[in-house]
Simulated assay, not measured.
Amino acid sequence: MTDLKEAIAFAQAAEARWPRSMHMPDGQFVMTYDSGERPPDNEVLGPVAPRGGASGIVYQGGRLLAEWGDTARADMTFSVAKSFLSLLAGLALGDGLIRSLDDKVAAYALDDGFQSEQNKDITWRHLLTQTSEWQGTLFGKEDRIDHNRVVGLAVAEAPKGTRRALRKPGSFYEYNDVRVNRLSLSLLQVFKEPLPAVLRRRIMDPIGASSGWRWDGYRNSTVTIDGKPMVSVPGGGHWGGGIVISARDLALVGLLVARGGRWNSRQILPEGWTDELVKPCAVAPFYGLLWWLNTDRRQFAAASERSYFALGWGSHIVWIDPDHDLMTVLRWIDRKQAAGFVERLLAAIAK
């Protein structure tokens, strides 16, 4: 398919401009540099791995359609980890560790992080839709660092990191990594087991993922649960750490979600959970449960409106398009040019 080869060539030519070392000439981590953060907000707490080149995989109808680049290389994925957290939240709900997404997190008596007047009414759903407005400091990072952060379709009223008045939980959407890390810690507390271990045992091993992926925490994110030290892992690589994984393993996870959480004859994710992931948030209809939606085709105009995505800075994209039975992974593509690949791929498969 000549047109498919042209789409792949486009993706390879549109490689992200981030330095392979992941550090700017002055030594600053490219993620915090890109975010415009200054000391002390830009302090890196977790490992940073040099990156590989552009790569990708396309499946249609469960069949491998295309593959390019070093798809076996494990690289940082940044906020794709958020979408992994949503899968773990589904397991917690299915296990009865979380009774309802609309339960107040404070009712679980995990710690004092939800006892304040601002935080006491926060629910699990609020955390999963980034509408919690949680206030506090976690692992040395204050929620204020990501106030007024512009990601995707959000519009900021002031420069990122500018403190703003907080709203009622559930009434305002803000992309905030401190709050996502708070969700991760809360999930660790209900599982009482490190999240990477839960992910490996319950999802990655059953779908045949490699042993080469990892989920790094911070140097200061070890907590004690039932007398045992456990590392709380972040929902991204904003300050280092996060999920380091290959395109091939990402593709397996994408296929699992695209198949409704079922792998061969085994239901890995709770029945119906993948439908829950893509229900639009009331105050942010472009967002589900830590998965991005294509509402009004505002993410990618060429993709079907039912498309949904795990997205990570850099850019890392897991694109599921039910209307075309497509599951696509893109690694290290310039985000501004990703739409061009989407258009070319869809044109290629239409012929």
Rank of each mutant, 00 (worst) to 15 (best):
W291F: 10
G261N: 07
G261C: 08
N294W: 00
W263V: 09
A258D: 11
L289F: 01
L277T: 04
N294I: 04
C281Q: 00
L289Q: 02
C281E: 00
Q299E: 10
Q267A: 15
Q267R: 12
P285F: 08
S265E: 13
C281M: 03
L290E: 02
L252C: 13
D275W: 10
R266I: 15
N294S: 05
G288L: 04
D296Q: 12
S265R: 15
E276C: 10
W263F: 12
L290M: 04
R266L: 14
F300V: 02
G254W: 13
R266K: 15
A284V: 01
C281Y: 01
S265Q: 14
E271Q: 09
T274N: 09
V257S: 06
D275K: 15
C281S: 11
W291M: 04
A303G: 03
A303P: 05
A302I: 02
A284K: 01
V253T: 12
S265K: 14
R262V: 05
R297W: 00
T295D: 08
D296M: 08
N294Y: 00
L256P: 09
P280K: 08
A282N: 13
R298K: 13
G272L: 14
A303H: 00
W273D: 01
L255F: 14
W292E: 03
E276D: 11
R298S: 06
L289A: 02
N264M: 15
C281L: 03
N264D: 15
P280W: 01
G288A: 03
I268A: 02
P280T: 13
P270T: 14
F300W: 06
A303F: 01
V283W: 02
T274E: 04
P285R: 08
P280Q: 05
K279R: 11
R266G: 11
R297I: 04
N264E: 15
N294G: 05
R297L: 05
L290P: 00
A301M: 02
G261L: 09
P280H: 06
F300L: 00
D296P: 00
R262C: 11
F300G: 00
G272P: 10
W292T: 05
V253Y: 06
R259W: 12
C281H: 01
F300S: 01
G288P: 03
L255H: 06
P285D: 09
R262T: 08
R266W: 15
E276P: 05
S265Y: 14
Y287I: 03
I268W: 06
P270V: 07
F300T: 00
W291P: 04
A258W: 10
A258L: 09
L277V: 07
T295F: 05
P280I: 12
L252W: 09
V278R: 06
C281N: 03
V278Q: 05
L256G: 12
W273Q: 03
R297K: 09
T295V: 14
F300K: 00
K279Y: 14
E271R: 15
D275Y: 11
G272S: 13
L269A: 10
A303E: 01
I268F: 12
R266T: 15
L290V: 03
P270K: 08
W263N: 04
V283E: 01
G272K: 11
A284F: 01
G260Q: 12
L252R: 07
C281R: 00
